[in-house]
Simulated scan of single mutants.
Amino acid sequence: MKQLIKSILPQIVIKKYNGYRAYQKYKGKEVFCPICNSYYKKFAPFGTSKRESRKCHNCGSLERHRLMFLYLIEKFNFFDKSSKDKIRLLHFAPEKMFYNIFSENSGIEYTPCDLFPKQYDGKTKITKADITKIPFKDNSFDFILCSHVLEHIPNDRLAMSELQRVLSKKGDAILQVPIDFKREKTYEDPNITSREERLQEYGHPDHVRYYGKDYKERLESCGFTVNVDHFISTLSKNDIFKYGLLESELIYHCKK
């Protein structure tokens, strides 16, 4: 019956209905999503471990997205529309909640990219781009956002070098990946190719490595200057709970 209903009703109707159900079930003021300005009793569980209070019921943001959003506001005043100069923003594999915000911001010259652009449907055109061969000139962008992409790329150093190449000389890049901080060195094995093996070894069937604490050095080897920012430590315990953040999350802020 559920499948029949899904096949008949438009997706926007289903989304609004699911949003209404979530609001009724999780109605409250304990947690807050700063991206879509929604309050709930708690966020939804998400992931293979189904860790509690991770995903926003409205915009779908996870802990890392909300932390990124707060960081962009606090460190870069990113959404200030009063500036005369537009930010030339390159965004790889754009998350839907960010894609919508950036597309509507008149202060941003937005260039979202993905290897499979047809999966997106929105106001701003998605440029088809291979991150290991970015189709833009040197120094083309003032800001680059690339979150949880590099762990999917076999030649991640080539991708890092390409990101460094297209970043302007005074530009900023936020390059996030999942990291196992118990590992001193990144773990990867080109002989691990099946989805089952990758799930077992890397925690995800589409990942090709598990980054360790040497991620910073990996970025630096490709020409970046890297500031590992423990931004979350500047937030109170109450705010960390309210925004549904992970205390272990670090921001990898890179410059040329």
Rank of each mutant, 00 (worst) to 15 (best):
H230D: 15
L62Q: 05
L9T: 02
R157V: 05
L163H: 00
L89M: 05
S61W: 03
I131E: 00
L90K: 04
L235Y: 08
K237G: 11
A93W: 06
K84M: 10
L250A: 11
M97E: 11
A44F: 07
F98A: 08
K29D: 13
P205F: 09
K242V: 07
T48G: 12
S83M: 09
I14P: 06
A173G: 02
N227R: 15
L89N: 01
S233H: 14
K86T: 07
K128R: 11
T234N: 12
M1W: 01
P117R: 03
F76M: 08
R195M: 12
C33L: 05
K25L: 15
F98W: 06
S83R: 15
G122Q: 06
H57F: 15
I73Q: 15
I179G: 04
E151Q: 11
N18E: 11
R209E: 00
S103F: 09
H152K: 01
E201Y: 15
K55C: 11
K169Y: 03
Y39S: 10
N238R: 05
H204S: 10
R64C: 02
K213S: 12
Y110T: 08
I134S: 02
F231H: 03
Y40D: 08
L62K: 01
H91I: 09
D80H: 07
S82F: 11
K256V: 10
L89Y: 05
R51H: 09
F143G: 00
D130W: 04
D239F: 08
T234L: 13
H91R: 06
L115D: 04
E104N: 12
N238Y: 14
E52K: 10
P178G: 02
E104F: 11
H148E: 07
I35P: 01
E63N: 03
G203C: 05
T193Q: 12
E217V: 01
S7D: 05
V228P: 05
K55R: 15
G122R: 08
K15M: 08
E188C: 06
K41Q: 14
G28Q: 09
F79S: 01
S53Q: 09
L89D: 00
G223K: 06
S168G: 14
F79D: 00
G19F: 04
P112W: 10
P112Y: 10
P178R: 01
I8H: 00
K255C: 12
L219P: 01
S147Q: 14
N155F: 11
P205E: 06
F141C: 01
K55W: 04
V13M: 06
E109W: 11
G28H: 10
V149C: 03
H207G: 03
G47P: 12
D85E: 15
I73W: 15
S106K: 14
L199G: 13
A44P: 00
L246N: 15
Y202R: 02
I101H: 07
L67N: 02
Y20E: 07
K2G: 10
P10G: 02
R51N: 12
S140K: 03
N18Q: 12
K185G: 09
S236H: 09
Y17I: 14
K86Q: 10
H65N: 13
Y210D: 04
R21W: 01
R183M: 13
I179S: 01
H230W: 10
K16E: 14
C222N: 06
K75D: 05
L246T: 13
K42T: 13
N227V: 14
Y99Q: 06
S233R: 15
K55P: 02
R157W: 00
L175E: 07
P205R: 04
F76N: 09
Y243M: 09
E95A: 05
M160L: 15
P205G: 04
A22E: 11
L245K: 03
